[in-house]
Design a protein around this nucleic acid. Structure first.
Length: 256
DNA sequence: ATGGTGGCGAGGCCA
């Protein structure tokens, strides 16, 4: 069983890359973020032809999350159950076989201290409450997403440049830490404890091409039973190379 | 401090 998370930065703009990646990597479950389209615009047919069922929670222009799975997707739930945030399509969850999975796209926050930064911290508290209420840690839970926070400086190519900047501030890291403290393992860090493994590289500074000047802001969070069956978590850097990539690379967990 | 690129959708917003 392989479960992946990938911020594709528009599922329509990325369709050819997504199709090629699915055909080659053949993950069993894919948790997508930033699909950037309404559900009726979601390119279902070409992905169904590759053998995937689809559950999507989209909106016009921004955000959007989805679950692709090679087996039945059941019990789909949308949002956090929090009216302050559910106008934005940022969370979808479902049962896929023995796994309870969620695809999560955290608020970016724009800049430390800005209104959206405070929204982000409030959103994180809501996410934590939702997980505590609806995601039993005794189950095999896998939460994948662009969480838009580095866990610590091991996730930052240049910690001095990013010190207390957006994605790296102490309060954001504490908000993510409070989610992990529910009892989730940080899958990628678990298998790469030394850090230096990144998942996002800024287009604007050509941060990938200039030499892996990235951050790790994408996660696979594993409940204890999921961690117990997990053999590896890796970043697929090939998906960040070549023509028309997303600015994020997929993260893939291999589970027994 | 600013701007750099990319996506959406048709000018500016967001990342």
């Amino acid at each position: 069983m392989r479960i992946a998370t990938w911020n594709v930065n528009s599922v329509r703009a990325r369709l050819a890359r997504l199709e090629a990646w699915l055909a080659e990597a053949r993950p069993d479950v894919v948790l997508l973020q930033e699909t950037k389209c309404q559900d009726e615009q979601f390119p279902r047919e070409p992905l169904e032809e590759l053998g995937y069922q689809i559950a999507s929670f989209g909106q016009k222009t921004y955000n959007g999350v989805a679950i692709l799975a090679r087996q039945r997707i059941e019990g789909v739930e949308l949002g956090l159950g929090d009216e302050r945030f559910d106008a934005e399509a940022r969370v979808i969850s479902a049962q896929v076989g023995e796994y309870l999975v969620a695809s999560v796209y955290a608020i970016n926050g724009q800049e430390v201290g800005q209104p959206r930064y405070h929204d982000k911290l409030a959103w994180y508290a809501s996410l934590r409450a939702r997980l505590a209420e609806r995601f039993p840690l005794s189950e095999k839970v896998v939460i994948g997403g662009d969480l838009n926070v580095t866990r610590d400086d091991l996730d930052v190519y240049d910690p001095r440049a990013w010190h207390e900047k957006i994605l790296c501030s102490t309060s954001e890291r504490a908000a993510l830490g409070a989610v992990l403290e529910l009892g989730y393992a940080d899958g990628l860090r678990h298998f790469h404890p030394a850090g230096g493994v990144y998942t996002w590289w800024d287009f604007r500074t050509r941060a990938f091409e200039r030499g892996n000047k990235g951050l790790r802001i994408d996660y696979l969070l594993l409940s204890p039973p999921a961690l117990a069956t997990c053999n590896a978590v890796e970043v697929d850097l090939d998906a960040r190379r070549g023509a028309k990539p997303s600015d994020h690379a997929p993260v893939v967990a291999t589970l027994a």
